[in-house]
Amino acid sequence: MNKSALLGALAASTLIAGFASAGTLDDVKARGELICGSNTGLTGFGMPDANGTWVGFDVALCRAVAAAVLGDPTKVKFVPTTGETRFTALASGEVDVLVRNSTWTYSRDVDLKLDFVAVNYYDGQGFMVKKDLGVSSAKELDGATVCIQTGTTTELNLADFFKFNNISYTPVTVQDDSEAQRQYLAGACDTYTTDASGLAAARATMADPENHIILPEIISKEPLGPVVRHGDSQWGDVVRWTFYSLLIAEEKGITKANIEEVAASSTDPEVRRLLGLEGDMGKMLGLDNGAFKAAIMAGGNYGEIFEANIGSATPIGLARGLNALWTQGGLQYAPPFR
């Protein structure tokens, strides 16, 4: 009798503990710091610079979320995660949000109990080879040795692609991007396959980028986006709308430089709502009304972040392509902010 009562009390206390950790937004506010799961180091997307400050396309989104929630884009702790550890880190609560080139798939969404709240980069899987290999198409890679990051969707796409084209390959599984590059450059594999954006980033850091080519075939759809735990819709909304606020800012021509000016002069009701001058949009989500303004001020709008980290002016040199705004023929489209 006593024992069952004790067990019951224990069970109840664990339940309460479970509920207490349900509100990520409150946890972040109480902690005064956002914990963001990032790449272990992928140039342009997320890696520490020479001063140890994290910079990159994915990192900028984390900073925008921190600015929206805490009002300060520097209050972020970045936890590097590998392809293998990232979802466990998120599910266990080690990180609040994961922004790390993670592909939105059905089984991750449904079976892993994760929520992909938006797509911040539309990508596809490609192959990089050395120019002197004399290969111009991925279909000529019969019998090749392929370096592949383990724990990724690319691993499965690769098997499907070679199977579908009825050609063979030898896989060399590696843990992360830097190890893959080392093996590829050392000639341990003929080709390295990952998301095309990742290949461009990897090529940019090589000593002789002109000797490596990315093959034209894109063998998969890889919508990459920020991920949160399933079942915490409020926190999911915070991340989702922070990202959309950056898109709307680009659409409306609000940049880091002119934001104060726009705020002072704009008469567009949507801009005024976005910048917290009209309505209680921020409060509805449990944030300040100026939250989205702070998010845009952290690193600029979506286009500015893209150009600064991975755009055509950077060594990575990615074109906007699918990631242009819908008004310019791309796929980036934010729902109305009202």
């Binding site: 293998e84 979802f87 466990t88 079976d111 892993l112 383990t150 499965l156 060399v172 843990q175």
Partner: peptide, 20 residues
């Protein structure tokens, strides 16, 4: 990257299925 029991069951399978 030797695919032993840790590499298959505890590595790729764990990751692709999410059954930690």
């Amino acid at each position: 990257s030797y695919l032993d029991l840790r590499g298959t069951l505890g590595g790729i399978t764990l990751n692709q299925t999410g059954r930690e």
